[in-house]
């Protein structure tokens, strides 16, 4: 490699790194702004819009229930089919519920619920806010002295975090039950025995870390999608790009955060 092409490579890496830092910085600023407006909205007027928050919870979360139910049921069943032969080989088939619940509650439940929600809620938020930017609605809000962060972003953030946690609970239960369904129908394991094994093998840490991660992933989804939506430029194409970016970047950040938090909980809890 010649010296100039090496310098060019360095320049490119540097530019990419700078872009990444600027992006993360932008997300950080938005997150801080959201926190500021949320706390201000709790203690002073204008208050957080409860009806808007509730509307967003229904729109972003409740409508995702069927798809998350189905996805998680299938994942639980698949896990059961995959793990049963291995456990059988070791004569440990009665531990199936343990393995499945230990996989679902701290990991697969929050992870898959939030990945599905990224496509469901994240894309919707980015497209909606992006269209509002293009239609000058955001500028109109600002010039009416209505802060878009307080008016639009805060209700979505609260709704998305609450619903990701709630959907994580659903995903956990359905995922483990999906494994139990295969255990009962195919492997002849008594459902009560499966249930009791699962309950007894779960410790508080498994459940709590799963829910904490669910909340964090919800925060990632909503901050990324709001940021992408609000920074749209260039019309319909820009809205499309923001929607795609919000899904891809949310999923990447969720998986990165999952790894980081799993490691953290491994060491400190």
């Amino acid at each position: 490699m010649s010296a100039t092409s090496f310098v060019r490579l360095l320049e490119r890496v540097g530019a990419q790194g700078e872009g990444l830092l600027a992006y993360l910085g932008g997300l950080g600023y938005l997150a801080l702004d959201v926190l500021k407006h949320t706390f201000a909205g709790l203690v002073t007027r204008p208050r957080i819009k409860a009806d808007e928050t509730f509307f967003q919870m229904v729109r972003l979360g409740v409508r995702a229930v069927p798809i998350i139910f189905l996805v998680q049921l299938l994942v639980g069943m698949t896990l059961s089919f995959t793990l049963a032969p291995v456990l059988s080989d070791y004569g440990q088939l009665d531990k199936l519920a343990t393995v499945i619940s230990k996989a679902v509650f701290p990991q697969l439940g929050p992870l898959l619920a939030s990945v599905v929600l990224t496509g469901f809620a994240g894309a919707a938020i980015a497209a909606e806010l992006g269209t509002m930017v293009v239609g000058e609605e955001i500028a109109a809000l600002r010039t009416s002295a209505i802060q878009p962060i307080r008016f639009l972003v805060v209700p979505r953030v609260i709704a998305c975090i609450l619903m990701t946690v709630a959907l994580t609970v659903l995903a956990n239960v359905v995922g483990t039950a999906g494994g139990g369904l295969v255990a009962y129908l195919v492997l002849d394991i008594d459902p009560w025995q499966y249930y009791h094994t699962a309950i007894n093998s779960l410790i508080i840490k498994d459940v709590a870390t799963g829910l904490i991660k669910g909340g964090i992933f919800g925060f990632i989804i909503v901050i990324v999608s709001c940021y992408e939506g609000l920074s749209v430029t260039g019309g319909a194409g820009g809205v499309g790009r923001a929607t795609t970016n919000s899904v891809v970047r949310s999923i990447f950040l969720i998986i990165t955060a999952n790894c980081a938090f799993t490691a953290l909980f491994y060491f400190v809890w």
Binding site: T131, M132, G135, E136, E137, A139, A140, L141, R142, T143, S144, A145, Q147
Partner: peptide, 22 residues
């Protein structure tokens, strides 16, 4: 931002497209 918001409450803007909240 707070001062600007207080100023903005005293003036109105009509945008080219109307910029209604859809």
């Amino acid at each position: 931002a707070e001062r600007l918001d207080r100023l903005r409450q005293r003036f109105g803007v009509l945008f080219q497209s109307g910029a209604l909240y859809s």
